[in-house]
Design a protein around this nucleic acid. Structure first.
Lengths: 122, 122
DNA sequence: CATTCACGTTTACGCGTGTAAACATTCAGC
DNA sequence: GCTGAATGTTTACACGCGTAAACGTGAATG
């Protein structure tokens, strides 16, 4: 499933808050992205054509809701990046961030806890 | 610096092996990607225009070399992804992979070692 | 010298995307 | 029933990208 940058913002919104009308989407994203209503309509339509959102009539308008799982999309996107940049491995990514001072104490703590927990689950 | 997918393959090659001629690039990537020589020339030119590669005349042809750091590019790309998908935090990403069974024993070991090492450097 | 070869430069073209206007339809209120 | 507001549908257009052919030019070679 190919979802563009602008489209993905619409999806992000729908994943958090669905069903939603086109106006809802515009209300939430229009000012942030400086989109006109027309732009939002186009994005919703393209997503519909791609099968990424489903619509359900509600009186004279539509209710939109995601038709694909956020998790699946996130996994696909992040896997691509990981493969492309880090040979598909996580440790080099973490290491990279650390090397560039992008790993805060907090991140480190979080990661340590997580790893421990995962270790315990054997 | 905006580097497209096809262009990034050229960059990856140049980062590993520079300086290189257009023929070198074609020899290395042409068959893999099913690119014609013309395509390689276009990509190199666009990268040149973007300032991502530098050229140096060598007799009648050019030698190409990266003009940006691979590390910087990787950091930029991965940061974008992390921001977009995981609120900029690493732990959720690792957790996500784990939840989807994409975290091997090996990954886990690597990560644990890495975290320990980083912890020590406090 | 004239031709060809190797290489860089220019031009091309279809497709996805960002962005949006124009058009169509339908419901609601006068 | 007609008019206007709301909403979906169609059309538009410029730009980046994947892909590549055409063109220009200088060097090599017969």
């Amino acid at each position: 499933m190919q979802i563009s940058k602008a489209e993905s913002q619409v999806m992000q919104f729908l994943w958090e808050r669905h069903p939603a009308t086109a106006s809802d989407v515009f209300a939430a994203l229009g000012s942030v992205n400086d989109w006109s209503e027309a732009t939002v309509k186009t994005l919703l339509n393209r997503l519909k054509k791609k099968g990424a959102v489903a619509t359900e009539p509600d009186g004279k308008r539509f209710l939109y809701r995601p038709a694909i799982e956020r998790d699946a999309w996130v996994l696909e996107e992040s896997s691509h990046m990981l493969n492309r940049l880090f040979d598909g491995r996580l440790a080099p990514l973490v290491s990279h961030f650390s090397n560039h001072g992008k790993l805060s104490r907090e991140d480190l703590d979080e990661l340590r806890d997580l790893i421990e927990r995962l270790d315990d689950e054997h």
